Computed example of a mutant assay.
Amino acid sequence: MATKNALVVGASRGLGLGLTTRLLERGWRVTATSRHAGGDLEALATQWDGALTVETVDTNDAASVDVLHKRLSDKVFDLIFVNAGITHDRWETVADVSTETFDRVMVTNALSPMRFVERFRDLVPATGTIGVMSSGQGSITNNTRVTGWEIYRASKSALNQLMRSFAARTSDDPRTLLLMAPGWVKTDLGGSDAALTVDESTRGVADVLEAQAGAGGLQFLDYRGQTVPW
């Protein structure tokens, strides 16, 4: 069986680093990105003897994204997965969040991932998958009780909407599109009280990504493969 190739964007720590590790364990060759050189991702590359290539990119910087695209323009990726997520003070609402914070969260969590998808879609074959890390908190249907993270929720809902617009605009494209909800995970964002470890969540995410290969169309799924209400 031919080796599968993945590009994981935002892999310096947490879920991105975890997913990169899970794919390597399953025999994938992975190109993984971070904003800065060094750190845990570079350390992981030394363990995998050429199976992991590390690149740097700032997805909020269009010029940086263009430079990476030029470096990788001769590659074909069975999977491109964009992981992005920053947050804010949990109890900030639109009544008190600063415009600067609102802009930063929206650009990082919604606009930049989709711009990356638009720029790199030509490197994914018709049988390939384009995935983006969303969140169950991006579900409008499930937003019925006060749990905080109002601006973060809005940014993930915006990401979902932009991905759905992309799918509608490219409805004749056979590639598989996935919005993934990783669950409540023990990361810097999820906190120590979260229900899942990074290993548990990313093992499930990797299972879903592999199971959905070739399915086509857009789905919003969680780490167990269950549909998340929009």
Rank of each mutant, 00 (worst) to 15 (best):
G18M: 11
A84E: 05
A6C: 09
V30L: 07
G128N: 03
G18V: 11
G131R: 00
L196Y: 15
T108S: 14
V76M: 12
T227F: 12
G136F: 01
W184V: 03
T176K: 03
V146D: 15
V76K: 14
T144R: 15
K156Q: 13
R153H: 06
T141G: 04
T202K: 07
A213V: 00
S155N: 09
V105H: 03
L19S: 08
I130Y: 01
A84P: 02
V65F: 02
R203A: 14
A211V: 00
F116L: 04
A194Y: 09
V65T: 13
Q212L: 04
D199Q: 02
A215H: 11
T56L: 11
L189R: 04
H69V: 11
D173M: 03
A213L: 08
A215I: 01
T176P: 00
M1H: 04
G217M: 05
R203S: 15
R153L: 12
E100S: 15
G85P: 06
H36G: 02
W91M: 12
A211T: 13
D40T: 06
V30Y: 05
D188H: 13
E42G: 10
Y223M: 07
D74W: 02
D193N: 15
T99Q: 10
D103Y: 05
E118I: 04
V228M: 01
S192K: 13
D188Y: 09
I140K: 07
T176N: 00
T87N: 10
T227M: 06
G131E: 05
A84W: 12
D103V: 09
G214A: 06
G18D: 11
L123V: 04
E25P: 11
W28L: 07
L178T: 02
A37E: 08
L218Y: 00
L178D: 04
M114F: 05
L15S: 09
D66K: 13
I86G: 10
Q161F: 12
A95T: 10
V107T: 14
R203D: 08
W230A: 09
D193C: 13
N60Q: 13
R169P: 00
A168L: 13
T56Y: 09
R13F: 03
W48Y: 10
D122I: 03
L52I: 09
T87S: 15
E200N: 07
R164W: 11
I86N: 07
V30F: 01
G38H: 11
G217C: 05
L17Y: 09
T56P: 13
